[in-house]
């Protein structure tokens, strides 16, 4: 196992926001095709850590490698193009645009290669991909609906559908079940498990049943640091983890 190169690795990765050390010298690695959960109390630095990985924030120090390549200085769009895709903790979609347009933006990015077609290519190839993606996500018949007028759960699923249309190698889900009804949570878990057959999934989650259902390995953060990592059983019985949660 140890000989297999990880998909993603961070070395002494830190992020300071004037005064606050949000991520503190974190060494983190992910194997290809695993589902990893990251948990931790509010303000532990989970969102900041994945934001450093996808390029939303630039690190104060440290290094990030993806597929063996140093990506620390790469722009967020280059990382997305290379396969690191992020869904926001607070849903981020195009609220004034239709579901079709939302998904089309992802499909267009993923399938159109020729530089001229990227600017002025025809819609037919794109729309084929959009219809497929909308169907798969359960949005058939809703393509013309304005995204901002959808229920919160649907908006989240739309964002997931967009990110999946990019064919990511690493899919980062930041508290995807937050604000969803139980039936929607079950749907989402089924989808994530199906996605994970081909894609590495990094999921930040507060909902413990979801974490236990999906993840083989759990990473626990507190105060910007990783305080424990292991199987669900190991994590549950780790005194540091219990202290971190009780202490807050």
């Amino acid at each position: 196992m140890a000989a297999v190169a990880p998909l993603l690795r961070t070395r002494e990765l830190s992020k300071r926001f004037d005064g606050v050390v949000a991520v503190d010298s974190v060494d983190f690695s992910l194997a290809r095709n695993e589902i990893r959960a990251v948990i931790g109390p509010n303000g532990a630095g989970k969102t900041t850590l994945v934001s450093l990985i996808c390029g939303r924030h630039t690190p104060s120090s440290g290094q990030i490698t993806f597929e063996g390549q140093d990506i620390t200085r790469l722009k967020p769009w280059t990382r997305a193009t290379n396969g690191i895709v992020y869904t926001f903790q607070v849903t981020s979609i195009y609220k004034t645009l239709s579901c079709y347009e939302n998904v089309a933006l992802a499909v267009q990015k993923a399938i159109v290669r020729n530089p001229w077609s990227r600017l002025f290519g025809s819609e037919s190839k794109i729309s084929e991909g959009v219809w497929t993606a909308l169907d798969e996500a359960g949005f058939s018949g809703m393509s013309d609906r304005i995204a901002g007028e959808l229920s919160y759960g649907h908006q989240r699923m739309l964002e997931v559908a967009m990110t999946l249309s990019l064919h990511p190698k690493l899919l980062i889900l930041d508290e995807p079940t937050q604000g969803l009804a139980q039936a929607e949570i079950d749907d989402l878990c089924t989808r994530v498990r199906r996605i994970a057959e081909k894609v590495t999934v990094l999921i930040i989650e507060h909902n413990m049943p979801v974490v236990l259902d999906l993840a083989e390995t759990i990473t626990v953060m507190d105060n910007g640091q990783i305080i424990a990592e292991g199987s669900p059983y190991e994590i549950e019985n780790n005194p540091l983890v219990q202290e971190a949660y009780l202490g807050h």
Partner: peptide, 29 residues
Amino acid sequence: MVIAASPLGRVLVAIRENDERTKLLGYNT
């Protein structure tokens, strides 16, 4: 009209509506 209807126009509108999302979809905004 051509720009508005093109993939280029779609990305321009996306930037107008949500720049950060567009970056993280992989567009060099």
